[in-house]
Nucleic acid binder design. Structure first.
Lengths: 207, 207
DNA sequence: ACCTGTGAAGAGTTTCACAGCC
DNA sequence: GGCTGTGAAACTCTTCACAGGT
């Protein structure tokens, strides 16, 4: 099954499956597509179809083995070996993200924190020490290929370019700016205000 | 044009259009679909199609009037009169969100902060004073119909139910738990770790 | 009896091409 | 010349039905 024709939406759901499996009680060895679907608010054929894009790793009449499926999904998603992530921006949001438990669950490790402000450089955030943004250039040597961008809007493009130049090819953009970067750099953007902005429409026009 | 057949994806993009228009320099009175598209990384027919679902408010040969379009979108989205939003959870993430500038841009006002912990109740967060979660019940009388949920995972379902009972019908869920709520309550979920989890796939399988 | 894997149908979304207007 | 609004085509994604395995 070629990776080329896996729907993007399927890729988006893979981390959801992973999370659902990780919160399974340890004594549960087998899970069915229906149970996964129920837990995530999807339907069973959707789950089976999604997983089948990457091969057949369930047992008909039985279900999917939890441990094996976790490993398969980790491999598919390319997060077997705990990717190290840089955080740029040690403001309120950045510091909150360092302590966010969710990243660990998928095996991500926040391995460096950068900030522009002299006031923040040298300060501790959890176990990490805030480094100057000028040190971003060395990320390649430190085996860090991903970053979370949590800087003020007007600093985002510049910081993103520094990351791209340092060899970072995956950026989680928490600013509400579109980043213009070389095509090989993948960007995911989170804009809490935009998500909030969608709700009133559906509150006023119940579907 | 009935609201019933406007694509969800179009609704998702409306706040993007709004933001793009709001960051326009004030001297710019007219904007074309091509310019909007370029600014947002979309294409021009997409922009025209999206806007046309709600009527024809551009001028052929000219473009869209910025001010008028902003008002139209605000009306369509139901955010003309600055919705008041409650924040539940005054932890690191919650406190960071209070200071997040993005909400203001769309006209949202964070009007109350709640927390369970005695240690936090009474403390100031910006101009707001943290209230006990038991006070959530009065939200209806305070004209607050939306909430942001930024509590620990194990407290999310309970807090969400309290919100729903208080008449909140739109929740931005920042926890990685699925909320089981009456159908009239609309939920948008943001899971930063999940977004981060998607990136390595595309880094390893460039599209 | 129960569950997976999958081709095919159906629904939803994007892109295109162009008629019509400024 | 330049831009909007829109039906139709193309594409993507979801749902369904069921063959086949345990």
């Amino acid at each position: 099954m070629s990776r080329q024709n896996v729907p993007d939406e399927t890729i988006r759901r893979m981390p959801m499956y992973l999370r659902a499996l990780l919160v399974c009680p340890a004594e549960r060895k087998i899970v069915s597509s229906g149970e996964l679907a129920e837990h995530l608010g999807l339907n069973a054929p959707q789950v089976r179809k999604d997983l089948s894009y990457f091969g057949a790793f369930g047992t008909p009449g039985v279900g999917y083995e939890v441990g094996a499926l976790v490993e398969r999904i980790r491999t598919i998603m390319g997060i077997q070996q705990a990717p190290r992530v840089a955080l740029v921006g040690a403001g309120k949001l950045g510091r909150a993200l360092v302590f966010f438990e969710g990243f660990k669950m998928y095996g991500f490790e926040i391995a460096a924190v950068f900030d522009k402000s002299q006031r923040k450089i040298g300060r501790k955030v959890g176990k990490l020490t805030v480094e100057p943004v000028s040190a971003i250039g060395c990320l390649g040597q430190r085996d860090i290929r991903m970053a979370i961008l949590a800087v003020p809007a007007d600093a985002s493009q510049k910081a993103a370019e520094a990351l791209a130049e340092a060899g970072v090819t995956g950026i989680l953009n928490m600013t509400f700016c579109r980043l213009r970067l070389p095509a090989q750099v993948k960007v995911a953007t989170i804009d809490a205000a935009m998500e909030l902005g969608i709700l009133p429409y559906y509150m006023n026009n119940p579907g």
